[in-house]
Amino acid sequence: MPVDHDVHHGLHVDQGALPGEHPGRHPNPVIKATGLAWLEFEKPDLPRTAAFAADFGFTPTLHTDDELHLRGSLPGPPCVIVRKGRRSVFRGPAFHAADHDDLLRLSNRLGIAPRPLPDTLGGIAVTAADPGGARVRVISGAITHPALPDATAERQYNFRDHPARVNTTQRAPLAPAQVQRIGHIVLQSNRYLETLNWYLEHLGLIVSDFLFYPGQRARGPVMSFIRCDRGDTPADHHTLAMTLGPSNRYVHSAFQVADLDTLARGGEFLRGRGHYRSWGIGRHIQGSQIFDYWRDPDGFLVEHYADGDLFDCSLNPGWAPMTASGLAQWGPPATADFLGVKPGTRSMKEVRSILSALATPDNEFDAERLLGLLKVPNA
């Protein structure tokens, strides 16, 4: 009997850089950010946002008529900050500086003075803009909320040679998947390479994996999964991911939960509450996370994930083609909604962005890149 062709063959992270390709790190960065602190949004309907947040598994630390702070169960500041605005918009990420001296070093390089954050957050921040226009804060001394009780602490799993649960059943109730912490943010930029280099130089981030359009490796990468450089201490495979596209925009954000059981149970809860699953459940290739993607009421894509890869500073970037089949080791095929090709308002907006980018010479998205992008959903 013939063996089925493995569509994932050659797509895992086993291809190194070719001579002259991007090294994936800056030789002398200004600072080395230690992690992603939070994301900032504006939305017109905070009660609706708060209701979805509760279903998704966040815990509020502040909820007023004008502002909503959402945290995970692990110690730290809130991981999402939503302020009331006339329309739904992503404002930008905030990163942790290693210490106050690093923040001052970045301030001097950028020529931007540190400013105090509101009392509800504490600490100080340097606020800049990356080349794609996203507002980027680098913070020090922000509030650290203590850990919350772990909803999975009493759960026990039986393995073949290590039984942990005997004469006892597993009956976890259907409930929101308790978010532990923020994991990563994915941004699209029509100045991808310029924006990537900005983060590597100013925040000391390093690339875990590069992707290139099929047949266009010689033109360079079009997506990068980027981690914090913590030296010998392992860090998430990616804290930031950057991808080339016709516009500068938010793509999705991801939040860690304890395990597959929590993720799947939380997904059933979200489905029962009438929320829209974009894609899942599956396991990614780059990063290896078990994933489940949902749309919030404003259309923002948010991800539950568990069991992601951890890399230290010694690993060099992997290189692979960007293909729809290369997005997951297992799980359902990537949906039209996740790929951005589902007919509707979002896809029409992207079409308008393509036309605008092609008509404007001062960006990296040209006709050849468009042809490469069009190959991705069917590759």
Rank of each mutant, 00 (worst) to 15 (best):
D232P: 15
P47S: 05
C313D: 10
I182H: 14
G111H: 05
W330V: 00
I281H: 11
P44F: 09
V302F: 10
S347D: 14
P173W: 05
P297Y: 13
I124S: 06
H100G: 05
H63L: 02
A37P: 01
G282N: 05
L148F: 08
G220I: 06
Y192V: 05
T152V: 07
Y192F: 15
R83W: 06
I281K: 08
P114T: 09
A53F: 13
D65Q: 09
K349G: 00
T233H: 01
A153W: 07
P47E: 07
L270Q: 13
N28P: 01
D101A: 10
L103I: 04
G57W: 13
R91L: 13
T61N: 01
A264R: 10
S88Q: 02
P114D: 14
G287H: 00
F291K: 00
D119I: 02
T335K: 11
R160N: 12
P246N: 12
E67C: 03
A147E: 15
D307L: 04
M223F: 11
G272I: 12
L211M: 15
A153H: 14
R271K: 13
E154F: 02
D99F: 03
F41C: 04
H8A: 10
H69L: 08
A241M: 08
P47I: 07
V251F: 13
Y213F: 14
N248M: 06
N248L: 07
N316H: 08
